[in-house]
């Protein structure tokens, strides 16, 4: 009786879960659908299949510039954030010292603060310091918001890491750096790559901070923002958006696979979700 009732409840929940997934994905799916539609306005019924909006993309120099800028910012921000994340995650998972929790809380804080507050406060300081706004200032801002994600991925990778392996290596005469390079690094490499991918994706998609901290150069989201004012440009934006969606999707899937591999290696579940 109870078992049946439970199954029944589970059935409703399953149905709800599928509906919820539809709710999550449906809006996003309209972008690719209308990006291959011949009509310039996104409405039903669909008029026909075309790839012309995609073919126009490489013919737009401003777009290519923005893509190049996004690539530079994304690579720099993800490398810097991951380096800072490695140091912090290693320190948090391996050492105990007073103030550890407070420092960790501070480093994770950008995750829960409104982006506009982060953006305008960094903007004020940068202007006061006399930094001219450029892609460099965007990188500085992106590193700040990427560190919490990098930390989450990396602490999961470092935690449960068997320290006796490192001790064994040290006992067998390996130097501290040698131990790190030959024992620690191979164990945590998947987590590091996962962190790089996650940070790159965040930087690639981030708009508000880039919008406030950039000078005249645009990144892809800023370029899209500029195009949104022109209704006629919408199909091109949809095509570009679709490419960005696919890029994020692929990067995050690879990151997730690597993260799981890292978790298996150190026999630790949880991770991004903990």
């Amino acid at each position: 009786m109870t078992a049946m009732r439970r199954l029944f409840a589970g059935g409703w929940l399953t149905a709800y879960a599928f509906l919820y997934i539809v709710f999550l994905y449906l809006p996003v799916i309209f972008l690719p659908i209308f990006s291959i539609n011949t009509a310039p306005t996104p409405k039903f019924p669909l008029t026909g299949y075309t790839l012309k909006w995609y073919e126009d993309l490489p013919k737009t120099p401003a777009l290519l510039d923005a893509a190049w800028n996004s690539l530079i910012v994304g690579v720099s921000a993800s490398v810097l954030a991951t380096l800072l994340g490695i140091l912090a995650a290693r320190s948090i998972t391996r050492y105990r010292y007073p103030g550890r929790r407070t420092i960790n809380g501070l480093i994770m804080a950008p995750l829960v603060l409104p982006e506009i507050i982060l953006a305008i406060s960094m903007l004020l300081v940068m202007l006061q310091l006399g930094l001219s706004l450029s892609l460099f200032t965007v990188v500085l801002g992106h590193v700040l918001i990427c560190i919490p994600y990098s930390m989450t991925v990396l602490t999961a990778g470092f935690e449960g890491f068997d320290r006796s392996l490192e001790e064994a290596s040290a006992d067998l005469g390996e130097s501290a750096f040698g131990t790190f390079r030959r024992v620690t690094l191979p164990m945590v490499a998947p987590a590091i790559i996962s962190s790089l991918l996650v940070c790159f994706t965040i930087s690639l998609d981030e708009f508000v901070i880039a919008f406030f901290l950039t000078g005249t150069e645009t990144t892809l989201p800023i370029y899209i923002w500029g195009q949104l004012r022109f209704a006629a440009k919408l199909p091109g934006v949809l095509a570009l958006g679709t490419l960005l969606l696919v890029a994020s999707f692929v990067l995050m899937t690879v990151a997730e696979v690597l993260r799981r591999r890292a978790a298996r290696r150190t026999q630790n579940e949880g991770g991004l979700y903990a």
Binding site: L84, G85, L87, A88, R90, S91, I92, R94, Y95, R96, Y97, P98, G99, R100, I103, L106, I107, A109, P110, L118, S121, M122, L124, V125, L140, G141, V143, L144, I147
Partner: peptide, 22 residues
Amino acid sequence: SVQGFALISPTFVYALILLVLP
């Protein structure tokens, strides 16, 4: 403690300069 703190200090300082100071 010293080692742990030294290791986290670059990230900590980064957060101080770009989060707390702002």
